[in-house]
């Protein structure tokens, strides 16, 4: 049960951003992706999650085992916290959302409308959704944006518990999650070479 990325090239807006990316993620492990803004971390995560096709190479992942969490939390502002989470629990067929609410310290807010939550509380609710998916591989894009230090520690605890149960996580983040056991992968060396006109232009002047 592992996730393998083989010779993967991804494109954003038709322009190749990363090429020849190779890594393997085993059950119980976390891999943190690093790299400057605009390098293609989000594009890579979307490709791994199956939201867009790769330019080249392939992603080998067990079917229906991927949960994706991006910048947007997918919350409906007129629904309450419990309704939002309950919806995802029934979509993924995992039943109750109570354990997830408790894990992300949201039980006290369960009857509040999502519109009335603070940015950090919304984020906690978005992350609680991962727990009700029941999926083994988590693809996380900047999961800690707008979380305070206590909530980051809370989430690191949830993540560690998920890894201990045989899960795995692929995380793009700039801040330290407090997970010393996680492997680091700097994506900068995989930057796709500039293609076409730009290269030819440079050659003419060399």
């Amino acid at each position: 049960m592992n996730l393998q990325v083989v010779d993967l090239a991804v494109a954003r807006g038709g322009v190749a951003v990363l090429a020849a990316v190779n890594f393997r993620l085993d059950a119980g492990r976390a891999l943190i992706l690093r790299g400057p803004n605009g390098l293609g971390k989000t594009t890579l995560l979307r490709t791994v999650a199956g939201l867009q096709p790769p330019l080249a190479g392939e992603v080998r992942v067990p079917e229906d085992q991927m949960a994706y969490a991006a910048h947007a939390d997918g919350l409906k502002s007129t629904l309450t916290v419990a309704e939002n989470l309950g919806f995802w629990a029934s979509v993924f067929g995992t039943g109750s959302a109570e354990a997830a609410l408790a894990a992300m310290n949201l039980t006290g807010l369960r009857d509040r409308r999502a519109a009335d939550l603070s940015a950090g509380q919304k984020r906690r609710l978005g992350l609680a959704r991962l727990l009700v998916t029941g999926r083994r591989f988590w693809c996380l894009d900047e999961p800690t944006v707008s979380l305070d230090t206590a909530s980051v520690a809370l989430f690191a605890g949830v993540l560690r518990a998920h890894l201990a149960e045989g899960g795995a996580a692929l995380i793009a983040t700039h801040i330290d999650l407090g997970l010393p056991e996680a492997a680091l992968l700097d994506l900068t060396p995989f930057r796709a070479p500039l293609s076409g006109p730009a290269g030819a232009f440079d050659e003419a002047f060399s």
């Binding site: 979307r46 939201l51 994706y68 991006a70 910048h71 947007a72 919350l75 409906k76 993924f92 067929g93």
Partner: peptide, 16 residues
């Protein structure tokens, strides 16, 4: 609306 708040991405990776 689902596209703007990100639920469309999440629904696309859901078992439905």
């Amino acid at each position: 609306l689902d596209f703007e708040d990100g639920s469309l991405d999440l629904l696309a990776t859901a078992p439905i």
